[in-house]
Design a protein around this nucleic acid. Structure first.
Length: 404
DNA sequence: AAGCATCGCAACCGCGCGTCA
DNA sequence: TTGACGCGCGGTTGCGATGCT
């Protein structure tokens, strides 16, 4: 059966809104608030369809809208969020205060697409337009812009900022279960240069489903889900600028570099993190506050833990969480931040933790028994890399540990 | 100055999803 | 369980502004 029209088209105005219509709409919403768009036009004395009123309000008349040009930071944020979320303009807009989905969508189509093309990047896939196959995926030399397979690190960035943001709760499905936090974890490494042709970002997905590794529909990076909906995350906030976006039950810790390549971390619903002072006695501790922490490990028996290390020369931070019932992959990585061996050592010497881990570097996560792009092969123990192998670039590492 | 092309953005349209009776 | 309804999202269109010849 066909849907009834949202309004009687023959009795509605179309096209540009007049100032009088705008004022009528503003006055009505000031008095009665948003909502009931279908009945609003008649009540407000407008010869417009409800959808048109809603659009006009949301995209143009809302008082909290930020008008004016997009900043370079907003540009990079949009690019990174798009690489993460695809054409989910409303989700992207929820992370840019004062910007609307329509505005971002238009801006994407008119400016950013062109910008990415000029960088040689496909705006849909966020991959280089020209693909030059590479055979040596472990080289430490930065790859050409057109390479997609090299794991070479990007140069360090010099400016890092962090913002605490919230996942969008605009849609009705977010109300079903605030405790059931469902997010997505994606890994990416930093850009190779100022052209920023790779993303450095992560979302962590926690839900009531068993932890698993999935391919992300928008990209080939790995999606990780966990059944743990509680927790926290920390990051190094030193020398960072912060901003707070709209809030909901889903809180993200979100950081990005704004120069030479955006570094975006999103961690949600993570397990309380505890630094360890002993490598032999590990107990679950109360949730810590988000604060500066380095070389920290979480432990708990019968659960699977991971910690993520976001590394660049100026900022090092560990993120962490718990994955229950997960099938983790033992994996060593030849490229590892210097802080990691200490953490790994603490893990491996712990009496309650078996030596199982996984590296999710190189932009892609790993399926079971699948080698990392950096050619690291699964192993049953954490391996401390030689100092020479330690990276000096902006990078994200994620390691999983399995407790017994 | 006129005509044409291109750009940028506001607005429209159709569809999908969630809710409710 | 099903269908109507309301809302919101993403893609597309229309048109004024601007630039070029």
């Amino acid at each position: 059966m066909g849907r009834s029209p949202c309004c009687e088209k023959e009795h509605t105005n179309k096209g540009a809104w007049t100032k009088e219509e705008d004022q009528r709409l503003i006055n009505y919403i000031k008095l009665h608030g948003e909502g009931c768009w279908r009945s609003l036009p008649k009540a407000a004395g407008l010869l417009r369809c409800g959808k048109s009123c809603r659009l006009r309000w949301i995209n143009y008349l809302r008082p909290d809208l930020k008008r004016g040009n997009f900043t370079e930071e907003e540009d990079e944020l949009i690019i990174n969020l798009h690489s993460l979320l695809g054409n989910k303009w409303s989700l992207i807009a929820s992370r840019l205060p004062g910007r609307t989905d329509n505005e971002i969508k238009n801006y994407w189509n008119t400016h950013i697409k062109r910008k990415l093309y000029s960088r040689g990047i496909d705006p849909q896939t966020h991959r280089p337009l020209l693909l030059i196959p590479t055979t040596d995926t472990t080289t430490s030399t930065p790859p050409p812009k057109t390479s997609t397979t090299s794991t070479s690190p990007p140069p360090p960035t010099t400016i890092t900022s962090t913002a605490t943001v919230a996942a969008s709760s605009s849609s009705s499905n977010s109300s079903s279960d605030d405790q059931n936090i469902k997010l997505t974890m994606l890994m990416g490494k930093g850009s190779n240069n100022s052209s920023n042709n790779n993303m450095n970002m992560m979302m962590i997905n926690t839900s009531n489903a068993n932890a698993k590794l999935n391919n992300h529909p928008h990209d080939d990076r790995v999606l990780i889900e966990s059944n743990n909906s509680t927790g926290s995350a920390t990051s190094d906030h030193s020398n960072m600028s912060s901003s707070t976006l709209t809030s909901s039950s889903e809180q993200l810790v979100f950081s990005h570099t704004v120069q030479g390549g955006l570094n975006l971390d999103l961690s949600i619903g993570l397990l309380p993190f505890r630094p360890t002072t002993s490598t032999t006695s590990i107990k679950l501790q109360p949730e810590p506050q988000i604060q500066q922490q380095k070389q920290q490990i979480i432990h708990k028996q019968h659960d699977h833990y991971y910690f993520t290390y976001d590394h660049d020369d100026n900022n090092r931070k560990l993120l962490y969480g718990r994955i229950k019932n997960s099938t983790n992959i033992a994996q060593s990585c030849t490229e590892r931040p210097s802080v990691l061996p200490a953490a790994a050592a603490a893990l491996s010497t712990s009496t309650s933790i078996t030596s199982s881990s996984v590296c999710l570097c190189c932009r892609l996560g790993l399926q079971k028994n699948q080698p990392c792009r950096c050619n690291s092969m699964p192993t049953s123990t954490l391996v401390t890399p030689p100092a020479a192998a330690l990276p000096t670039h902006n990078y994200i590492y994620t390691y999983y540990t399995t407790t017994t």
